[in-house]
């Protein structure tokens, strides 16, 4: 019989027993509701072994690619090592050396990290960076694994922010930090190369969009790719030159810098990035969407994109939630 490993314990699966039943009968607190593979409340991740095909039915492809599955409908014949989505143990700690620090504008720092062990990630995922053992924050990956040697982060300084302040003021090249990850399901999945893509980001939300766009272009995406990057003022529109350069290089890439403050010079769209995006492209049927940055923007835009015709499975989003004090 198959063995199910969870958090250093091993359980033998009984005949006709689902992975969910096996774990909950042993007192593991896996949340569940329908027990029939539809509500996705019980979502877990296989960190070893391969979940059954039936247990991945209906999951978003960015989740199945990361071996997520529904234990309530998983009856594996072979051993599985499993974790809950929030289990920190599911990710190993990797030491990384700071290779360089450079300001992209007044308050966004480009951080380059060299990992001491191999890290398998996709552009657009995030890592957790630790100032010390119990103080860590999520930062998105702007680098593309097969193009960039190191991990690239864009860290915005928040007023009195603990970790972002430490990164800006105290971190030095040569220093070693601990990271965990990667995590997140907001990334480019090869295929459907002619599909239209819309990316909307505010502030340092551009980090992961920059990674996703370069990844999509390198992998031969030919459909139109529209990037709307929003900021209050000119200073916030960092990577302006790089994005213009990319636009010159790829005919299917379109960069629309958006300014929501007063004083908008020629060549920039006036208004909030998501408003401008919906104005320019009102119908999003069959579009692939990427939304990153300010939590309220992401929440509102996700809903609007869905109502404008984008399928739920085609909407990828990361809200940069700051931890509640």
């Amino acid at each position: 019989m198959a063995i199910i490993r969870y958090a250093k314990d091993s359980y033998e699966l009984e005949d006709d027993q689902s992975v969910l039943d096996c774990l909950t009968h042993r007192g593991v607190a896996v949340p569940f509701s329908c027990r029939s593979g539809v509500c996705q409340t019980c979502l877990m991740r296989a960190t070893g072994g391969t979940p059954t095909e039936a247990s991945q039915q209906g999951l978003k492809n960015s989740l199945t690619l990361q071996n997520y599955f529904l234990p309530c409908v998983c009856y594996p014949e072979t051993d599985l090592e499993v974790a809950l989505p929030d289990d920190a143990d599911a990710q190993v700690v990797i030491p990384a050396t700071v290779k360089s620090l450079r300001l992209l504008n007044d308050d966004i720092m480009h951080v380059e990290l060299e990992c001491h062990a191999q890290i398998d990630y996709r552009a657009g995922q995030f890592i957790n960076l630790f100032q010390h053992q119990t103080l860590g924050r999520s930062y998105s990956l702007a680098s593309v694994p097969y193009e960039d040697d190191h991990l690239h982060l864009h860290v915005r300084r928040l007023p009195q922010g603990l970790v972002s302040g430490w990164i800006h003021d105290e971190l030095r090249p040569g220093q070693t930090v601990e990271i965990r990850g990667p995590g997140g399901d907001c990334f480019y999945i090869p295929g459907d190369t002619e599909q239209s893509m819309m990316l909307i980001g505010t502030g340092s939300g551009l980090a992961q969009l920059y990674g996703i766009i370069r990844d999509a272009l390198s992998q031969g995406h030919t459909g139109p790719i529209h990037l709307f990057h929003g900021s209050r003022d000119l200073n916030g529109l960092y990577l302006f030159a790089e994005l213009r350069e990319l636009m010159a290089q790829y005919a299917n890439f379109n960069y629309i810098p958006c300014l929501s403050g007063d004083d908008v010079p020629a060549g920039y769209a006036t208004g909030r990035a998501h408003d401008i995006a919906f104005e320019q492209i009102p119908s999003l049927k069959n579009w692939r969407m990427f939304l990153c940055g300010h939590p309220e923007m992401v929440r509102v835009t996700k809903r609007k994109a869905f109502l404008a015709g984008a399928a739920m499975k085609n909407i990828y989003a990361d809200a940069f939630n700051v931890s509640q004090p």
Partner: peptide, 19 residues
């Protein structure tokens, strides 16, 4: 929204007389 959509799926399965 994603969790909500999954719950709608549960609702539909139930209403369609599914398992």
């Amino acid at each position: 929204m994603e969790k909500q959509a999954a719950k709608q799926k549960a609702f539909l399965t139930m209403a369609f007389g599914g398992p």
